[in-house]
Design a protein around this nucleic acid. Structure first.
Lengths: 202, 202
DNA sequence: CCATAACTGGGGTGGCCCTCCGGTTACCGC
DNA sequence: GCGGTAACCGGAGGGCCACCCCAGTTATGG
């Protein structure tokens, strides 16, 4: 039986079904890379050489398809978070990871939106696995950084991720998206205001 | 260009045309308030009691319609910016104004997106007037604040507005959007990192 | 009052998302 | 090897939408 670790199959999927499933994900990857996450589902189906009904049967909602497409990248991000946990500087580790998340969100257009919609309370089972994965991975990093007093203690991982997602979402369609996103993230991390460093002169 | 509806032209427009124009804007206002900026243009036309062709003739693109709808609010924001120019604390003035921009962007769903799309270089004449108005109004505030060394000097007004828009865009569909947006804006303004001094707010 | 040009909106086109339903095909037991 | 069965496939169609065309209508200047 052909092993593909990406899809757990309690009931074994029929061979042709799995073949089409993989085709659709591959097609979605390329089409989304070109047209963004709002790409036409029919075009994805056309590109995959299947009917639109097949696509909708395998992925009842667009979110489900995005999850399948982005799953490997999200796993890579989580792995990176785990690696960074052993970093000597938890603050820098967190920032590095957030920057990586932002870069991925800008590069894979719509990942940011996907992450945020994953936070929607509507579907408890469908389409929030990526979101919960990212949140739990980042939460550990944030906990370390907070313990090291490297970040503002009132900041939550949800807020940080939302901030990163928002920046990515806002810049992902710009010509120099990655550059702008990085600048904005730096600004947000360091703050816009200048606090008087030596003496608070209020 | 035959129509520049809001500018006082002697008689460029026939009376019925102007009547329909105003009807459409009013209808768009209510429909957008209910369904967001991605509302159906046909529903707006239906609500205004005109044909869809009339709507498209007056507003060739959705952006043009959004501009007309949000123009008064943008003008109010610009007026507020002008008022804040005479504030004693330029830093606080800038922050106050940015917060007001964010609040409006969250409240008037799609204003944020509208502002960002206004930055697109595609249409030089259509649909960036709101954007340029906001930018020039904010630029003066930023200049004052920078002169008073209240903000990081490398921050540009474009970046600040993009940040605010991004936050608004990311939170505008949440149940507690305004609250979240305000928290995120605070975070971004004060910075996530803790540097040498921790003086978040006074 | 009338000629004319501007304005209007019903209807058409094409695209999208999504769902039935009859035909097809892989799989399992014999 | 060989049906029987259930899972699977995809074309066809419905509903919705943005946008355009063209014949009819109406405000307006002379």
């Amino acid at each position: 039986m052909p092993k593909d670790a990406t899809a757990p199959a309690p009931r074994p999927m029929r061979a042709d079904a799995r073949r089409n499933y993989n085709r659709i994900v591959a097609a979605a990857e390329t089409v989304i890379a070109e047209h963004g996450a709002e790409a036409s589902l029919e075009e994805i189906a056309r590109h995959a050489g299947v009917g639109s009904a097949t696509l909708h049967r395998h992925f009842p909602t667009r979110q489900a398809l995005l999850e399948a497409v982005f799953k490997s990248r999200v796993e890579a991000l989580c792995a990176k978070a785990h690696d960074l946990l052993s970093d000597t500087d938890p603050g820098t580790a967190l920032v590095t990871w957030l920057r990586a998340v932002g870069a991925h969100a800008v590069a894979n257009r719509g990942l940011g939106a996907s992450l945020m919609r994953g936070a929607r309370h509507g579907d408890p089972t469908l389409g929030n696995t990526c979101h919960t994965m990212i949140v739990s991975a980042g939460d550990e990093l944030l906990a370390c950084a907070r313990q090291a007093k490297a970040v503002r203690p009132e900041a939550t991982i949800s807020q940080l991720l939302k901030l990163v997602s928002a920046i990515a979402l806002a810049t992902e369609e710009e010509p120099d998206g990655p550059t702008q996103a990085d600048q904005l993230l730096n600004l947000a991390l360091d703050g816009v205001r200048l606090h008087r460093t030596s003496r608070p002169h209020e």
